[in-house]
Amino acid sequence: MKNIVLFASGAGSNAENIALFFKNRPGVKVSYILSNRSDAGVLQRAKKLNIKTKVFDKEMFFHSDKVLYFLKELSPDLIVLAGFLWLVPQKIVEAFPGRIINIHPALLPKYGGKGMYGRHVHRAVIENGEKESGITIHYVNDKYDDGDIIFQARCPVLEGDTPETLAERVHRLEYEHYPRVIARILEKRQSPG
């Protein structure tokens, strides 16, 4: 059984989309959703989907090994960041080499880095007069939005776009492609034991 662990900080629509995609697929399971916010909407979505959750704080994530050891116990084939806004500590990245991925709501390497998420990204893309935007799925390293790119999909930036209208187009790309890319990565990977 391939084991996916999701990390999310917000409403969790991407996490829910991924969980639903794999719900009836044999051999793959979303075993846990972890969040750094006890009020995150993703926790309610997880409850409805009967997926276990764990909430952690900065101390547990950055200054202790609690989250690291918890992940090691879960032995995930893939750790998927779905709207998770904290930088993953190097010790976690090193413990799961090539097994942590993230989705970014723009075409990297442009418009990445700390603070480049949600509306901030879409506003920057529009203000800079870009003709297209999209999504980037990439491996996670110890810097924001810096890991090797796995997949990109594009959409136009239309005249009169607002951060909200562009976000809708980008979200559609996320929902369409992220689960499929995860499935492809898992197909190429042998289960650990």
Rank of each mutant, 00 (worst) to 15 (best):
V88T: 13
P156R: 10
L158I: 13
K188E: 13
P105S: 09
L158W: 15
K131T: 15
Q44L: 14
A8P: 10
I150E: 07
K54P: 01
G98T: 05
H63I: 08
K91E: 07
N36Q: 01
A153L: 06
S191K: 15
V30I: 15
M116G: 03
Q190D: 13
I92G: 07
I100C: 06
I137T: 00
L6K: 08
H122D: 00
A46L: 05
T53L: 10
Q44I: 12
Q90C: 04
S9T: 12
G115I: 12
R123M: 03
V55D: 01
G118F: 09
S38N: 15
A106R: 02
L173I: 11
N17I: 01
I135C: 00
S191R: 15
K54C: 11
K114N: 14
G12V: 02
A15P: 08
L20K: 13
I126C: 03
H122Q: 13
K2C: 10
G112I: 14
Y32H: 13
R123N: 09
K29D: 10
A183N: 14
R169G: 08
V181P: 00
R123I: 01
L6M: 12
G134H: 02
A183H: 12
S64N: 15
H63A: 14
K58L: 04
K91I: 12
T165C: 06
A124F: 08
L173H: 11
P26I: 09
K52D: 10
F62S: 07
R169E: 08
P26A: 13
P97S: 08
H104T: 06
E127K: 11
A106N: 01
E168Y: 14
A124V: 11
P89G: 12
A167N: 10
E16P: 00
G160W: 10
L74D: 01
Q152P: 00
R180E: 14
W86H: 10
V80D: 00
R45I: 09
V55C: 07
I33K: 00
H177C: 01
R189Y: 03
P179K: 05
Y69I: 14
A124I: 14
N102V: 07
D57P: 10
L107N: 04
E73C: 10
A153E: 14
D145I: 00
K66E: 12
E16T: 04
K143A: 14
P179T: 00
Y117E: 08
H138D: 01
H122A: 01
A153T: 08
R37T: 07
K54F: 15
R99T: 07
K52W: 04
H138P: 06
I33N: 02
V121C: 08
K72H: 04
V93L: 03
T165P: 04
I101S: 02
R25D: 04
E132Y: 03
I79P: 00
K47H: 09
E127T: 11
V55E: 03
P97W: 06
P105Y: 07
N50M: 06
A167T: 13
P97Y: 08
R25S: 05
G193E: 08
Y69N: 15
K47S: 11
I103T: 14
L49D: 03
K58P: 01
R169C: 09
N36E: 03
L107D: 00
K72Y: 13
D146I: 00
G147E: 05
L173F: 05
F70A: 07
P26K: 09
V55H: 02
P163H: 07
E127D: 11
I92A: 04
